Simulated assay, not measured.
Amino acid sequence: MTSFFAYDEITWPEVALLPRNTPLVIPLGAGYDQLQLAAALGAPPRVGLLPALPFGWHGSALSVPDAVLGALLRNLLDSLRDDGFTQVFALTPEGLQLGLEHARIAQPVAARLQPARQQLPPAAAAGSVILFPIGHTEQHGHHLPLSTDNIIIDHISRAAAALLPQLAYSMPLMPYGVSTHRSSFAGTLNSGGRAFEDFWLAVVDALVARGFDRIYLMSGHGGNCSFLTTVVKYAGERHRRIFCATAYLHTAGPAGAAAVKAHRVSAVGGMGHAGELETSMILALRPDLTHMQRVVDETDFVATASYYMDWAEGGALVANPPWDDDTATGSYGAGSVATAAHGHIWLAAAAAEKAEHVREIHEQQRRREQRREAGYGLWGRT
């Protein structure tokens, strides 16, 4: 009898111990028959299910071209192969042309479990800021699950939309992003920078074609941020009457940073990756996935005046040194001092920060449209 486990709920040392012939599967959406999947895989003892992509394929609530989605999926599957896994597959509805060849298992989706035919975002959300929580599936030290970034940014996005239900609409979580640091610690995937950019630009194109003009790409993973900046720049050039924005992570603006400073226990260098901030947030949201007995504090980042690490990399320099220069366990920071109480405080601050961004996006679009309608500058030329 085949058993299934959630790949993203384990830690990277547990991924490192998995037999490399363990089948790993990335589903497109939900509603597949696990008995049929087990049979297609030859009835192995265990199968790892990775987080499902929520949209992107034809027939989903929001689709992009097959070639764009196929490139992103190939990179994700290659990440698993790079970790030594020999049986990696995308589980997809029938009829898609994704160029995955033998790395694809196609199944009919049970009618009772098919997503609603309604497109996302719904037409009723026109005029709202469309929030896209974009996380990643990656290692977070010995004590936090691979889903850490996903859990946190999904909560923040939904909480921000709940604060402003008439102004914002939160889309389903996208659980994959970009990681250039993969070789030292098992478990981390990589969409690939170019494929990631192409995917999100195609998403923006699809929304604009349906009349949406306010889009916020919200990242819960630092490695996504530079690539999302590129998406925003291309989107603004391609679609001149929209306001598409992103920001560096969360809890990083003036109000969020003030909340972090007011309640932190660790010194500078203690927030980092799987440090006090993220560990506190996961203790607040999913304590069942947090293994505090395994925490290893690592704060010996090679810091200089213009390049250092705390919650975000700081200083004037932008660099990308190997992670294992600074950490033996995959963590940067002091996770041992984390508390659920502080996690709740910082999550609330992060949601409020994002809600304020929503208000600003509305104001930016409103004021810019007023100028355009008035014929300001080049808009006045015929």
Rank of each mutant, 00 (worst) to 15 (best):
T2Q: 07
T2E: 04
S3N: 12
D8G: 06
V15T: 04
R20P: 03
P23E: 00
L24Q: 08
L24A: 09
L28G: 07
A30F: 06
Y32F: 13
D33I: 02
L35H: 15
L41N: 11
G42N: 13
V47Y: 15
V47N: 15
P51R: 09
A52I: 15
P54F: 13
H58N: 14
S60R: 13
L62A: 12
D66K: 08
D66P: 13
A67I: 14
L69A: 11
L72F: 14
L76H: 03
D78V: 13
G84S: 09
G84H: 11
A90K: 05
A90D: 09
T92W: 03
P93M: 05
Q97H: 14
A106D: 10
V109M: 00
Q114I: 11
P121E: 02
A124R: 09
A124Y: 13
A125D: 13
S128G: 10
F132C: 05
G135A: 07
H136A: 15
T137G: 14
E138P: 00
H142W: 12
H143M: 07
H143F: 00
D149K: 00
D154V: 03
D154W: 02
H155M: 02
A159W: 06
P165K: 14
P165I: 12
Q166G: 10
L167V: 13
A168K: 02
Y169I: 13
M174D: 02
L189A: 04
S191G: 08
R194E: 15
F196P: 01
A202E: 04
V203I: 08
D205F: 02
A209Y: 00
D213T: 03
M218C: 12
G220V: 07
G222D: 04
C225E: 09
S226L: 09
S226E: 09
S226V: 13
F227A: 00
F227K: 01
T229W: 08
K233R: 11
A235D: 04
R238K: 05
R238N: 07
H239F: 01
R240S: 05
R241A: 02
R241Y: 05
P254V: 01
V260Q: 06
A262P: 07
H263Q: 10
V265P: 04
A267H: 10
A267F: 06
M271V: 00
A274Y: 06
E276Q: 04
E276V: 02
I282W: 09
Q293H: 11
V295Y: 04
D297G: 06
E298K: 08
V302G: 06
S306E: 15
S306Q: 14
A316R: 12
L317C: 11
A319I: 04
P321V: 01
P322R: 02
T327H: 05
A328W: 01
G330H: 03
Y332Q: 10
A334Y: 06
S336V: 05
H342P: 00
H344G: 11
H344Q: 13
A351R: 00
K354H: 14
A355N: 10
A355I: 07
I361G: 01
H362D: 08
Q365G: 11
A374D: 14
G377V: 06
W379M: 04
G380P: 08
R381F: 15
